[in-house]
Structures are given as C-alpha cells and as structure tokens.
C-alpha cells in the first residue's frame, strides 16, 4: 500500500517524508507498544503503528528497516525524533484514531500483518 493511502485512510498529519508518500510502498504492517516484541518478531513489516512516543521507537524502526511510523491517539513526535527520522529518511505521521481502529481500517483496506518470525526460520 502506498504511504499516501495510509495517510488518507488514517487522516494522519505527516511530520517527515511528506514529499515521498506517493513513491513509498509498504507491504505489511505491525501494531505494538512493546519495542522488545518489534525487535523479536517483526520480519517484513515496513510500517509500525504505536502509541509509544520516544526516540527509541524511531531507533527500533531503523534497526528493523521499517519505512514509516504512525503514532496513534494523537501522539506527536518530538523534535529529537523528527530530526532522527529525517536523517534516516523515515516517514513519521500521527493519527487521532486509537490503535485498534487504525489497524482495523488499514487491514480492511488490504494492508495485512504478515507472520511472526518463529525460531529457526
């Protein structure tokens, strides 16, 4: 799914990477407030939805090669997070929707979650 479509579905405010939304595609997404889980189980998901707002969220997404983060429930990234995301060419946006609704809307529109990574895979 084009990130532009993600932004439209979630009616999200874009903080970084706004000029690249039409070029960038994500195949799968994941929703989590637990970065430990993101680090342990994410595989191909290019989009992270989270209610957590700190620099380590951006770092975690960087380590996992994720292209974009959507902050739910109106959480706004701080200056430090925006600067880091700009350096990493990562898209940051905020939706007023809660996590379950935001994930549900994207799923309904064809963006799915992929599979968790199992040991030994």
């Amino acid at each position: 799914m084009e990130l532009k479509k993600v932004q439209e579905i979630l009616d999200a405010t874009v903080y970084t990477g706004g000029d690249r939304l039409e070029e960038m595609q994500v195949m799968e997404a994941c929703g989590s407030d637990l970065m430990s889980d993101v680090l342990a189980f994410v595989k191909e998901q290019g989009l992270l939805l989270t209610g957590l707002q700190n620099l380590q969220v951006v770092r975690t997404a960087e380590m996992m090669d994720m292209e974009a983060i959507v902050f739910v429930r109106g959480k706004v990234p701080n200056e430090e997070m925006i600067a880091a995301a700009e350096r990493m060419e990562m898209v940051l946006m905020t939706t007023e929707l809660p996590m379950f609704t935001a994930c549900g809307l994207l799923y309904e529109n064809g963006l799915h979650g992929g599979k968790a990574v199992e040991d030994g895979e």
């Binding site: 407030d33 637990l34 970065m35 430990s36 889980d37 680090l39 342990a40 989270t50 957590l52 700190n54 380590q56 969220v57 975690t60 040991d119």
Partner: peptide, 15 residues
C-alpha cells in the same frame, strides 16, 4: 514504560 524490559533481549541476541 519506554517499551523495553520484556525479557526478550538475551534470547533475541542469541537468535
């Protein structure tokens, strides 16, 4: 509270 400390670190490093 920052999203860590779930007891996944060392097992994930090993993995």
């Amino acid at each position: 509270e920052l999203g860590f400390g779930a007891g996944m670190g060392l097992p994930n490093i090993k993995k």
